[in-house]
């Protein structure tokens, strides 16, 4: 698909700004997204092409404003729902539970 992920040759994204001594992960949630994705991938819940396409199907604005592990999280949630592994209602009830538990 001609998505915004197909970045090669585009202008206007500004300087590259490499971070010196960058850590492997910047936040605890990034660690968990990485680990859960690998465990789910290893468990055969989706293949690599489905995963990449899951990222590409994000909205263009969301893709460009979101970080790498936000892309992964989006694809994980989308694919696991599409494949019937989880339902949005199950997920929503967990969101509610953790949002309440956090306060």
């Amino acid at each position: 698909m001609n998505g915004v992920h197909d970045l090669g040759g585009m202008h206007g994204f500004g300087p590259i700004n490499p971070e010196p001594n960058e850590p492997v992960f910047h936040h605890e949630w990034e660690r968990r997204v990485f680990g859960v994705m690998m465990a789910a991938f290893g468990g055969g819940h989706f293949n690599v092409d489905q995963f990449r396409h899951g990222i590409e199907r994000m909205g263009a604005v969301e893709y460009l404003s979101g970080s790498y592990y936000e892309h992964w999280l989006h694809a994980l949630e989308a694919l696991l729902q599409e494949h019937g592994t989880i339902t949005v209602d199950e997920l929503a009830s967990k969101w509610k539970q953790f949002a309440e538990g956090a306060h």
Binding site: R32, V36, A39, H45, E77, L91, W95, F98
Partner: peptide, 21 residues
Amino acid sequence: PSDPELRIKALESLLAEKKLI
């Protein structure tokens, strides 16, 4: 929700309950 921390906690917890991870 917009908070990825909450979303991944919810997803991991759900998958663990289902014994998928």
